[in-house]
Design a protein around this nucleic acid. Structure first.
Length: 205
DNA sequence: TGCCAGGCCCTCTTTAGGGCCTT
């Protein structure tokens, strides 16, 4: 399976909680496709998880039980998401979280999730070691990236993550005078130890 | 109704513990 170096899906889920293993479900998905350094397509879907959303999540996301009651079931939206994502590489902020939910929801549909993942949070920890923290909202403010002030809604967070991802790519290219930073390079960057970052960047230049 | 996790990183580490990040 091959992936275009400049084509990735940036994904974000809102969910009923932290763990699909304990019955939590996805209630909203937002995804954008990046090609050639630009957002070229968007996918958004509110869905009915079939279980009650607790008050904390309602407050946290603004997504209420009344809203999802009118929405299609998870299975329908997740099936459409699979068509949107295809075999593209996927980026998410703290991707281990979104990957767990994507795998769990697709498993219900008997779909495999073999897409490669990269994590914008782990990459940002390497590049922005001087940031106050590495929450998505903090990194957007830290880099003065454009946003519409909406947080904890899936498409808004996916778009902010995409802007952060593109910003990190541009900064690496500019800083080290290299072009065509590939998805696999960003994956490796997120995994190298903090003490090895300088050596890693030296190999890029 | 309320509760529940997991992967990664760092360090005063590796026979571990605690913090960060996601909802």
């Amino acid at each position: 399976m091959t992936h275009r170096a400049d084509s990735v899906i940036v994904l974000d889920f809102e969910t009923t909680g932290m763990s699909p293993h304990y019955g939590d479900r996805v209630i909203e998905v937002g995804a954008v496709r990046i090609e050639a350094g630009e957002i070229v397509d968007r996918f958004q879907g509110l869905m009915n998880p079939g279980i009650r959303i607790n008050s904390f999540i309602e407050e946290f996301t603004g997504i209420t039980n009344a809203m999802v009651a009118e929405a299609p079931p998870c299975e329908a939206v997740m099936s459409d998401l699979q068509l949107f994502v295809g075999d593209s590489a996927i980026v998410a902020h703290n991707s281990s979280f979104d990957r767990r939910f994507l795998q769990a929801e697709w498993r219900r549909l008997k779909l495999e999730c073999e897409n490669p993942f990269a994590c914008s949070m782990l990459t940002a920890r390497r590049i922005y070691s001087d940031a106050p923290n590495h929450k998505l909202g903090t990194l957007v403010a830290f880099n003065q990236l454009k946003n519409d002030g909406v947080f904890h809604r899936a498409l808004a967070d996916a778009e902010m993550t995409a802007h952060l991802w593109l910003h990190m790519l541009q900064q690496i290219e500019r800083r080290f005078d290299v072009f065509d930073i590939r998805f696999s390079t960003m994956q490796k960057l997120a995994k190298v130890s903090k003490s090895s970052v300088s050596k890693f960047f030296a190999q890029l230049a």
